[in-house]
């Protein structure tokens, strides 16, 4: 009795105007939300319990609970070295890459902000162009430019008398120097656009009044521009952080899946653990469970940091 009456109440609510409006909203938001839950949130929920098992891959029939063994496996031989190296490379890359964001994006944005020339549009178009290159493309361009013996830049430097093989993309240091540079080159236009968007949103009165108050250019940048583009800075920081730790495509281009040990960053390591002997070569070195464990271990803290930054950004929006 009670059940049927609440069901009756529910049905009549759906027929009421508020109910109908809910159904309309659902009809429009529903399709994408269904997809989103199915292929994005559900995978996340599925991934969680697997980290406590020894599941080899998705076809594995013989799965047992192993508690925190997967975490332990990362901290023991034989995986600890590779995991440690990958983590170290990735973290270092993230740091250098973040510096590049400012060296490329922010400086370019400042220049474009001051520029009044009609060439502005042309410059913007050119600077934004590398954003169209795929990650694999960036990796291959790095091979093309910085390989020992065949790299165009190396050949050019040799031609100019700077010596042979000044950089080697496949060496440890070579990867760590050239990757952030090329990545910065690719994202320069995007980062510049974000910073420029922030700069253009600054009320011009504050800049003009700072000028009247006698602030020099550098003073204006530090005291007027930067405090007012904090939201842009946070957006760029989140993007840079997530992209740095998730960098994968470029490393595939650098041969990370086909034997270039110096290109084994975290994402490549995870891919090797979970998929390994895929079409692109490389060997399976662990279990699916270990792969998901590493992703969670590394990316969950990142998610939290990014979420915190995102909230901070909402709070700091002046305009």
């Amino acid at each position: 009795m009670a059940g049927s009456s609440t069901r009756g109440a529910k049905r009549s609510w759906l027929r009421s105007r508020a109910g109908r409006r809910f159904l309309v909203d659902l009809a429009y938001a529903g399709p994408q939300l269904f997809l989103y839950v199915l292929v994005q949130l559900l995978p996340f929920v599925i991934a969680l319990p697997i980290i406590f098992t020894d599941r080899l891959d998705f076809l594995d029939q013989d799965v047992a609970w192993v508690g925190l063994d997967n975490v332990r496996a990362m901290l023991q031989p034989p995986l600890v070295d590779r995991f440690g190296d990958a983590l170290q490379r990735t973290a270092l890359f993230a740091l250098v890459n973040y510096v590049m964001v400012y060296l490329f994006g922010f400086v370019l944005a400042l220049a474009m902000f001051e520029l009044t020339s009609r060439l502005k549009g042309l410059f913007f178009t050119i600077i934004y162009m590398p954003w169209m290159i795929s990650g694999v493309g960036i990796g291959l361009l790095m091979i093309m430019l910085f390989s020992s013996d065949t790299g165009s830049l190396n050949l050019l430097l040799k031609e100019l008398g700077f010596g042979r093989n000044v950089v080697d993309v496949k060496s440890e240091a070579g990867t760590l120097i050239t990757l952030p540079i090329m990545y910065g080159w690719k994202t320069a236009g995007f980062n510049m656009a974000v910073f420029l968007g922030g700069l253009l949103a600054i009320p011009t009165e504050t800049i003009e009044s700072a000028r009247m108050d006698g602030a020099r250019y550098l003073d204006r940048v530090i005291h007027i521009y930067i405090p007012q583009i904090v939201p842009s800075i946070i957006i760029v920081t989140i993007f840079s952080l997530i992209n740095s730790f998730g960098i994968f495509d470029e490393l595939v281009g650098l041969g990370g899946l086909s034997g270039n040990a110096n290109a084994e960053f975290l994402s490549v390591f995870v891919y090797q653990l979970g998929f390994g002997a895929g079409a692109t070569g490389g060997a399976k070195i662990g279990t699916l469970a270990q792969a998901i464990t590493v992703s969670l271990l590394v990316f969950l803290p990142l998610v939290l940091v990014a979420f915190g930054l995102n909230r901070l950004q909402k709070r700091l929006q002046y305009h």
């Binding site: 989103y36 292929v39 994005q40 995978p43 996340f44 991934a47 697997i50 998705f58």
Partner: peptide, 22 residues
């Protein structure tokens, strides 16, 4: 919920996604 997507790296969910797709 959609904003959450911005901070889930694809690598983290690719394996279960593959499972669901297939």
């Amino acid at each position: 919920l959609y904003m959450l997507n911005m901070i889930i790296p694809p690598m983290m969910v690719i394996l279960p996604q593959y499972l669901i797709m297939t």
